[in-house]
């Protein structure tokens, strides 16, 4: 779980005022062994460094170059300058994929986080068989990315399947969702929301760090549950929320598998292009039409867009993320 481990810095920065003892070691020795073990350290890091250089950085630079060319894998790449980037904006299917992806990100990421926070707050209170519930709610995010779950999901939302029957019994006859362009994307949103385990665990850790005294003091002042949530939980949890918003937004931009499995019919992203994620269209351009230059340009546009969104999030975070690190 990379999401879980990388939560570390954000958490320790804001919410571990009493973390002192672990950091202070017997100074001299630590420093010396750091110096002499340097080469060995790099040696042991070398698989990662090599992997990063050869499998990530190298291909990324190659793809940057290819994005300025017309390249079909066979003939040598032909330099076309910014043509691929210009073509994109005239490409109807590209514009559709952008729209579908943005819709998906804007709906699925906040919805997933809201569910994750709600469940985390329910599970934060000590109660019996707490461990069981936590595992049970976490389980979907372990299996949710698998192809078999996506296939099951597709079956659930077909005509006369579970979802249709339950809704019909409740008085909302809905029919199948899979073949309906206006609802197919919602299947994928729900599949994403169902996998709320990772942000939930991070929220749980964050909730545990909120000092009890704050709540006790608020209760003495007569604050109700809502007031405590708005004035204590949300502000003290804001660094964790920020981290989760960032991770989930970036993750949602990159969604691929679910749409590939659930909605691939007459071409990718069906029905009628309603689930054409950006990544899906990129795959179609690169690996079905073999227009690698165009696909590379698309990949770099995605990187730029995600970078931009991340930058905007960081900028706005100054006004709503509260770091209780005692410096103010």
């Amino acid at each position: 779980m990379t999401a879980g481990t990388s939560a570390g810095p954000a958490l320790s920065r804001g919410l571990r005022p009493s973390a002192g003892p672990q950091q202070a070691g017997p100074g001299g020795r630590t420093r010396k062994s750091l110096r002499t073990d340097g080469p060995a350290g790099y040696f042991f890091l070398s698989p990662w460094i090599l992997g990063m250089l050869l499998l990530t950085l190298g291909p990324m630079l190659a793809s940057l170059y290819l994005s300025f060319t017309d390249y079909n894998l066979f003939t040598a790449p032909e330099w076309v300058g910014l043509q691929n980037y210009v073509d994109m904006f005239a490409d109807q299917r590209w514009r559709q994929s952008v729209l579908v992806t943005l819709t998906y990100v804007v709906i699925s990421a906040p919805l997933k986080l809201a569910v994750a926070l709600a469940v985390a707050m329910l599970l934060a209170r000590p109660r019996r068989s707490q461990g069981f519930y936590r595992s049970a709610f976490y389980a979907p995010s372990l299996i949710g990315a698998s192809v078999s779950i996506a296939i099951t999901w597709r079956a659930l939302f077909s005509d006369d399947a579970a979802v249709d029957r339950v809704l019909t019994a409740l008085g909302f006859p809905s029919g199948g969702w899979v073949g309906d362009p206006s609802r197919a994307l919602m299947i994928l949103v729900l599949l994403a929301v169902w996998q709320f385990g990772a942000p939930m665990v991070i929220f749980l850790a964050g909730l545990k760090q909120i000092p009890r005294e704050l709540y006790e003091a608020a209760e003495c002042d007569g604050a109700g549950p809502w007031r405590k949530f708005w004035s204590i939980t949300l502000p003290t949890l804001s660094p964790v929320i920020f981290f989760n918003v960032l991770m989930e937004t970036i993750g949602a931009f990159q969604a691929f598998t679910s749409a590939f499995v659930v909605s691939s019919g007459n071409g990718l992203g069906g029905p009628a292009g309603s689930t054409l994620f950006y990544t899906l269209y990129l795959y179609e351009r690169g690996f079905q039409d073999f227009r690698m230059g165009y696909a590379s340009a698309m990949a770099w546009m995605l990187l730029l867009a995600v970078g931009l969104v991340t930058a905007v999030l960081f900028r706005t975070s100054r006004s709503w993320v509260f770091y209780n690190d005692g410096s103010s």
Partner: peptide, 11 residues
């Protein structure tokens, strides 16, 4: 046949 039934039956 209605297109949503066709899409749903795939593959």
């Amino acid at each position: 046949p209605p297109q949503d039934k066709v899409a749903q039956a795939l593959p």
